[in-house]
Computed example of a mutant assay.
Amino acid sequence: MADGAVILDGVLTPAEADAVRAELDPWVQATSPGRDGFTGFRTTRTGALAARSPLCRDLIRNPQVLAQCDRLLLPSCERYQLHLGQVIRIMPGEKAQSLHKDRWAWGTHLKGVEPQLNTIWALTDFTRENGATRVVPGSTGWPDDRRADPSEVTQAVMTRGSVLVYTGSVVHSGGANDSDSDRVGLNITYALGWLRQEENQYLACPPEIARTFDPELQDLLGYAMGSYALGYFSPPTAPGADPEVVPPNYALGRRSAGSTLGSAEDRAALSEDVAQG
């Protein structure tokens, strides 16, 4: 993705997109708009997708998207994780959001590494009139203080069921909704496994819910070691009732033999990184 963004057409059928929207709509309708210009006074953001929506659990694991995560993120981590999942509804009368890079969630501290891969799944058609995402192609390498000229900005016009895939380093924003209907998109984002998630998945999808999921989804939510010794905990139980140091998936009832930290592969990868460092 030399431009930093690409549209995958027709990943979902219109009927499938409608089903996802219908499943989430009760929570969307109950969500209050933002309280500042950036979040949008006519925009709602509804999260906890994995906990609330069985259909979204499949979208989080979409093979086309995960293949891009493998290519973009795995060179900088042992595993990546779900960074956030939310429905973004831009309602009529909303102004265009200010242009930004999503990587700024971590400030401007990260240099020389791409921290995330983002997706916007169109649950309605995205048009120029209803607020299709604004994107500045080729802006991934821009300095943080570089501002886009209006001529450099385009929009991700796409039909419902299509997906905009873009990096955390590309300049973008929500568009203005000058139409008479909502623009609804599903924002599913992945980040390096050693970074703090924007949406705290352990609270949005706690162990009592996550333990019912398959291991791949559990790992994506963050119930896995970020590397050999990143993310373990000590169960707050009676003396001797549990091992003292266990990986996050222990909270879901998953037990494994061998190391109580990361896997042997994690340790080998860490040792190789140190040797090459």
Results as ranks from 00 to 15, higher is better:
residue 207 P to T: 03
residue 18 D to V: 07
residue 89 R to T: 14
residue 186 L to G: 09
residue 6 V to K: 10
residue 218 Q to I: 08
residue 174 G to A: 04
residue 101 K to R: 15
residue 123 L to S: 00
residue 63 P to V: 02
residue 134 R to P: 05
residue 73 L to A: 05
residue 1 M to S: 12
residue 178 D to N: 15
residue 93 G to S: 09
residue 176 A to G: 07
residue 169 S to F: 06
residue 134 R to M: 13
residue 164 L to Q: 10
residue 214 D to V: 10
residue 216 E to V: 04
residue 161 G to S: 02
residue 101 K to M: 07
residue 190 Y to K: 10
residue 127 T to H: 02
residue 184 V to P: 10
residue 53 S to T: 10
residue 167 T to Y: 09
residue 34 G to Q: 07
residue 250 Y to Q: 05
residue 76 S to R: 09
residue 89 R to D: 13
residue 252 L to V: 02
residue 157 V to D: 04
residue 127 T to S: 09
residue 76 S to N: 14
residue 238 A to Y: 08
residue 246 V to D: 09
residue 271 S to E: 15
residue 273 D to G: 09
residue 145 D to R: 03
residue 226 G to I: 01
residue 35 R to L: 12
residue 123 L to D: 00
residue 215 P to V: 11
residue 70 D to N: 12
residue 117 L to T: 00
residue 212 T to D: 15
residue 86 Q to W: 08
residue 62 N to R: 12
residue 116 Q to L: 14
residue 142 W to I: 00
residue 52 R to K: 14
residue 100 H to R: 04
residue 98 S to A: 13
residue 205 C to N: 11
residue 181 S to N: 08
residue 273 D to F: 12
residue 240 G to Q: 09
residue 240 G to L: 05
residue 54 P to T: 08
residue 206 P to K: 02
residue 247 P to Y: 12
residue 181 S to Q: 14
residue 275 A to Q: 14
residue 219 D to G: 13
residue 264 A to R: 13
residue 159 T to M: 06
residue 55 L to H: 05
residue 145 D to C: 01
residue 129 E to I: 11
residue 230 L to K: 09
residue 3 D to T: 07
residue 15 A to L: 05
residue 229 A to Q: 12
residue 121 W to V: 07
residue 257 A to P: 05
residue 158 M to F: 04
residue 214 D to E: 15
residue 91 M to E: 15
residue 223 Y to H: 10
residue 239 P to A: 05
residue 257 A to M: 10
residue 238 A to S: 11
residue 208 E to M: 09
residue 27 W to S: 03
residue 21 R to M: 13
residue 259 S to H: 06
residue 72 L to G: 01
residue 231 G to A: 00
residue 9 D to P: 09
residue 10 G to V: 03
residue 208 E to L: 07
residue 11 V to S: 10
residue 221 L to Q: 10
residue 253 G to P: 01
residue 262 G to A: 04
residue 262 G to V: 03
residue 266 D to F: 13
residue 251 A to R: 15
residue 108 T to A: 12
residue 101 K to N: 03
residue 159 T to E: 15
residue 106 W to V: 00
